[in-house]
Amino acid sequence: MAKPMTKTQLVAALAEEMGSDKKSAGGALDAVIAIITREVSAGGSVTLPGVGKIYCRERPERTVRNPATGEQIQKEADKVVKMTIAKALKDSVNG
């Protein structure tokens, strides 16, 4: 399995794709990340066309087991960030 792309590599690739410098590409990437974070934190969702949908989902209170001790404990309700992958991306990977 290939290593994941680092932020530096992503910024360099984005700059090349945009025909821009790394500083403006890094600023654009940081702005997109900030917008996604703000929207999902507020309970909304963000759709990245061709990539997928990022959203926040609430999980109810539940009983979990500590694997080390076997003790059953009650875990409070919490929120998790989820992503649904777009069909176009799935098809490009599998096709």
Rank of each mutant, 00 (worst) to 15 (best):
M1W: 02
A2I: 04
A2F: 02
K3Q: 06
P4I: 09
M5H: 00
M5D: 00
T6S: 08
T6K: 06
T6F: 02
T8S: 04
V11D: 01
V11N: 01
V11W: 03
A12L: 08
A13N: 09
A13P: 01
L14K: 03
A15K: 04
A15P: 12
A15G: 07
M18T: 06
M18C: 08
G19S: 03
G19L: 04
S20R: 12
D21T: 15
K22E: 05
K22N: 07
K23S: 14
K23Q: 13
K23G: 13
K23D: 10
A25P: 04
G26C: 06
A28P: 10
A28G: 13
A28F: 14
L29N: 12
L29D: 02
D30P: 10
A31E: 14
A31V: 15
A31T: 15
V32S: 07
I33L: 15
A34C: 11
T37A: 13
R38C: 13
R38H: 15
E39L: 09
V40G: 07
V40M: 13
V40F: 06
V40C: 13
V40W: 07
S41C: 12
S41V: 11
S41M: 12
S41T: 09
A42S: 15
A42V: 11
A42G: 14
G43Q: 14
G44F: 12
G44V: 10
S45T: 12
S45D: 15
V46H: 02
T47C: 02
T47S: 10
L48P: 01
G50I: 02
G50L: 02
G50Q: 11
V51L: 14
V51S: 00
G52D: 00
G52A: 00
K53L: 00
Y55D: 05
C56V: 14
C56L: 14
C56Q: 14
R57L: 06
E58S: 14
R59P: 03
R59C: 13
R62C: 11
R62D: 12
R62F: 09
V64G: 07
R65P: 02
N66F: 13
N66D: 07
N66G: 09
P67M: 07
P67V: 04
A68M: 09
A68T: 07
G70L: 09
G70I: 08
E71R: 10
E71F: 05
Q72R: 11
I73M: 10
Q74C: 02
Q74D: 06
K75A: 10
K75F: 08
E76Q: 15
A77M: 11
D78T: 13
V80W: 03
V80P: 00
M83G: 01
T84I: 00
I85P: 02
A86N: 00
K87D: 13
K87T: 09
K87P: 01
A88C: 06
L89Y: 05
L89K: 02
K90G: 08
K90H: 02
K90S: 05
K90Q: 13
K90N: 10
D91G: 04
S92L: 03
S92H: 03
N94A: 12
N94T: 11
N94H: 05
N94F: 03
G95Y: 08
G95D: 05
